[in-house]
Nucleic acid binder design. Structure first.
Length: 284
DNA sequence: ACTGGCTCCTGAGGGC
DNA sequence: TGCCCTCAGGAGCCAG
């Protein structure tokens, strides 16, 4: 499931093949993703891709007509660069044929992905205009996180996964970051002191930086754009490891569901907040 | 202003 | 072997 490092890895993988190429054909094989792929996408045929970037988990391809092609990978999406005559796989829903003999294909079994064409400035689009800072940029710092947490009683895990707080922290790296910072995921955000918030800020940066460096986590659905898997999964300290020993202290890692998402933490390194009962259970 | 719950979808994996 | 059931999860949306 693509998180920020996977999206960044995808961007780096596909950018060299699509930048400066002209779009020969827009191919929509299954338009029904999270939203319908708009017909207006055909308008980029004949235009050139002049840049590729990312905001949060949204991939943004600048088109020479001034519009922007937005692609979100959702839960299970991946982009690959192929040849036009390569066999179509099941769930290859969308593709751009380029004038350099390549094809950019979106594969998305669960169809939580998104393909849109933005005609205005991307940063003004409703999907993007309320987003928090990028976790690896200077705008994300301990004081900023403190301000965001000050009036929020929700569990810190929920707060850091909220894109209005900071973008790109998905379920996996939320658990990993909280483990690194020794914070229990259910701690109310407004009960964290400056030292903990500093540790958390650093942990989020560190975990994401390491993940990007290692090419993104491979779980079921992610494949790097050249077809080779990423390797970060072996570095996950707690995620998916319910019942296994904590790599730091050896205690059994716990698992529970927080805000509909499975969460993993060490009961010894990450002390639960007082006056809160959790429905934790020992994972498999 | 917050908060938590629901929803979209398919494939993997467990149980029998 | 094969069927059925449950679960996983990003993030927009909505109700309380």
């Amino acid at each position: 499931m693509p998180e920020l490092p996977e999206v960044e890895t995808t961007l780096r993988g596909v950018a060299p093949f699509v930048c400066h190429a002209a779009v020969r054909e827009v191919i929509i094989r299954q338009a029904r993703l999270r939203r319908e792929i708009p017909d207006s996408l055909a308008e980029i045929e004949g235009r050139r891709i002049i840049g590729a970037g990312r905001r949060a988990k949204y991939l943004l391809f600048q088109v020479s007509d001034g519009s922007t092609l937005l692609i979100h990978l959702g839960m299970s999406g991946s982009l690959r660069v192929t040849r036009p005559d390569d066999e179509w796989r099941k769930h290859d829903h969308f593709a751009l044929s380029l004038d350099n003999g390549r094809q950019l294909r979106l594969h998305d079994p669960r169809r939580f992905g998104l393909v849109l064409r933005l005609t205005g400035p991307p940063e003004n689009h409703p999907l993007l205009c309320d987003l928090g800072p990028e976790p690896l940029e200077d705008a994300f710092h301990p004081e900023f996180l403190r301000a965001k947490c000050a009036r929020r009683a929700a569990a810190i895990k929920t707060v850091i996964m909220d894109a209005k707080t900071v973008v790109g922290v998905g379920n996996i790296y939320a658990s990993e970051s909280l483990f690194a910072a020794r914070i229990h995921p259910l701690t109310p955000a407004n009960r964290l002191g400056p030292a903990k918030l500093r540790a958390l800020t650093e942990a989020i940066r560190d975990v994401l930086t390491r993940a990007i460096g290692q090419g993104g986590t491979t779980l079921r659905d992610f494949v790097q754009s050249d077809g080779t898997p990423g390797y970060f999964a072996i570095s996950l300290a707690v995620y998916g490891r319910g019942g296994e020993p904590c790599p730091r202290c050896g205690a059994r890692i716990r698992q529970s569901v927080i805000a509909q998402r499975s969460s993993y933490w060490c009961p010894k390194c990450q002390r639960p907040p007082a006056n809160r009962t959790t429905t934790e259970k020992t994972g498999r």
